[in-house]
C-alpha cells in the first residue's frame, strides 16, 4: 500500500513533464508505430502478390502503397484497375470506402496541439489509417506533429516494404501463415479497446453498441446488403449519437 502510494506520487511530476520536446514525442510515436507496421507487412505482402498476379508491374504496386496508404480502398481500386474498369468507377468506389476517414480526421482534429501549422496538419492527415487513428486518438495527451510523424513512419515503410516483397517474391504465403496473421490487426484493435472499456462504463457501452449495430448490418436480412465501408460509417454515426446522448462529456 505504501509502495503503491509512493509509486503514484512519484508518477505525478513525470506525467507533467512528459512532453519534453519534439525528439521525445517523435520517439514515443515511433515506438507505438512498430506493432502496427508488423501487422501491416503480411497484408501489404498479399496486396503486392495480388497486384502483380493481376498484371500490374511491381513498381506500380509499390507506388499505389506509397501514395494511398490504405488497405480496403486500394485493394478495391486495384481490383478495378486490373478488371479494366472506367476511371470514374475506380475513383467513386475508392472514395466511398474512404469516407470513414472524414469522421476519424474530424475527431482527431480536436486532439491536435493548438497552433499546429496548416502544412504540418496536412502531413499528419496523410498518415491517418484505421490503426494510426486508433492509437493516436486513444492517447491521453494532445497529438503533436512530431508524435504523429513518429507514429506514421514505421507503418508507412512497413506497408510499402511489404508490398515490394509481395510484388517481387510473388508467391502467396503458406495458407497457415496467412490465415493466422490475418487476425493480427483485429487483435491490436482489441488491445486498444479493452483498457478503456475496463476503466470507463461509457467506453464499454459505446463499444458494445457499435459491435451490436455492425453485427446487425452484417447478418440481418436486407441490411446485410450494405457494403462493409458504409456499414462502418453508419455504425459509427449511430453509436456516437447514442454516446453523446446517453453519456455526454463535460470535460472534453
Amino acid at each position: 500500500m505504501t509502495f503503491l502510494k509512493q509509486k503514484t506520487s512519484g508518477a505525478e511530476p513525470s506525467r507533467q513533464t512528459n512532453s519534453v520536446g519534439p525528439v521525445a514525442d517523435f520517439r514515443s510515436g515511433l515506438r507505438k508505430g512498430i506493432p502496427i507496421a508488423l501487422g501491416y507487412i503480411p497484408v501489404a505482402f498479399t496486396f503486392g502478390v495480388l497486384a502483380v498476379n493481376g498484371g500490374l508491374s511491381p513498381w506500380i504496386a509499390v507506388v499505389i502503397s506509397l501514395t494511398n496508404l490504405t488497405s480496403a480502398g486500394q485493394f478495391a481500386g486495384t481490383n478495378l484497375i486490373i478488371a479494366g474498369a472506367p476511371l470514374l468507377e475506380i475513383t467513386v468506389t475508392t472514395f466511398m470506402i474512404n469516407i470513414r476517414y472524414l469522421l476519424m480526421s474530424l475527431s482527431l482534429s480536436q486532439k491536435i496541439v493548438p497552433g499546429t501549422a496548416i502544412l504540418k496538419r496536412g502531413i499528419m492527415a496523410f498518415g491517418i489509417t484505421d490503426e494510426t487513428f486508433a492509437v493516436a486518438s486513444l492517447e491521453q495527451k494532445d497529438i503533436s506533429f512530431c508524435y504523429m510523424l513518429g507514429l506514421i513512419s514505421c507503418p508507412y515503410w512497413g506497408w510499402a516494404g511489404g508490398t515490394a516483397l509481395g510484388a517481387l517474391i510473388c508467391s502467396v504465403l503458406p495458407p497457415a501463415v496467412q490465415n493466422s496473421m490475418g487476425i493480427a490487426l483485429y487483435a491490436m484493435f482489441i488491445a486498444l479497446l479493452v483498457p478503456s472499456a475496463k476503466q470507463s462504463r461509457a467506453a464499454l457501452t459505446v463499444t458494445l453498441i457499435a459491435v451490436a449495430i455492425s453485427s446487425l448490418l452484417t447478418w440481418a436480412p436486407y441490411l446485410k446488403q450494405i457494403s462493409s465501408g458504409w456499414s462502418i460509417i453508419i455504425t459509427t454515426v449511430i453509436t456516437c449519437l447514442c454516446g453523446a446522448l446517453f453519456f455526454p462529456r463535460e470535460d472534453v
Partner: peptide, 28 residues
Amino acid sequence: PFLRSFLYYVPYAALGAMTFPGILYSTG
C-alpha cells in the same frame, strides 16, 4: 458539447465496428 461528445466516442465506435464481426472472418 454534443458535437464534442460525439467526436470523443468516434474511436470506440469505429474500432468496435471494424473489429466485430470482421474478426470472425479474418482467419478462414
